[in-house]
Design a protein around this nucleic acid. Structure first.
Lengths: 107, 107
DNA sequence: CTAACGTACAACCAAATGGTTGTATCAATC
DNA sequence: GATTGATACAACCATTTGGTTGTACGTTAG
């Protein structure tokens, strides 16, 4: 069973655009942390922390190759997750629309 | 189009067990904020803030009835979202399992 | 009209978040 | 074995978060 605290941490991990982008890249291939760090306008340590958050909830794993640590993610699993999230986004968009409609009715 | 910032806020809204519980109740029926507040071991103002977070991302709306404000949510939309999230949870659980396996292999 | 209920909102606080820089470690290369 | 590249980790800082209490505002019931 997944505990509430775990769901908290999962959603929290996904509630950051940089982390979602790292996850996207990790699904498409294997990148060292320093390679990933080049892609974002922040320090290496900051990216390292983001990777750690993703790793702590199991969305990403690290594997040693030479002196690099490759960040990777299971394509099947995350693809399913991505599709689920797309659905969520769609549902949410609909909700916002209904809200806007309600606000208009007020006038 | 949904912006990154909006997705950030959506996930953040869902990354709290109390807020998810409020959302669940709001899907099942209409509850005034004070009625909701009775259900949690925290102050009325704290629950008020949680509702405000859900409202700000459109997961919940408020409607006046008498002197109460009823918190409600669109059942269809949130049902779809819930199903999407269940899928995500399943996918995530699988991911964690694979991680555990990898850790075991290490020994 | 006034008392009581439901809500809003501000001020405040402790803890967590997201970022920084600096130092240490560890593996490969020369 | 010394140097270099990749990573880890700690200390620090500003901001946000989740909680508190207190006060003010609407709305309804007597």
């Amino acid at each position: 069973m997944i505990t509430d605290a775990e769901v908290d941490r999962l959603f929290h991990a996904l509630a950051d655009a940089t982390r979602r982008d790292i996850l996207r890249r990790a699904v498409q291939g294997e990148f060292s942390v320093s390679r990933l760090a080049e892609a974002y306008p922040m320090s290496f340590a900051a990216v390292q922390k983001h990777v750690a958050v993703l790793e702590s909830v199991g969305l990403v794993t690290k594997q040693r190759r030479g002196r690099e640590l490759l960040v990777t993610s299971d394509r099947d699993v995350v693809d399913r997750a991505r599709r689920a999230l797309d659905e969520l986004a769609e549902a949410w968009k609909g909700r916002v629309q209904r809200m806007a409609d309600l606000l208009d009715e007020g006038h």
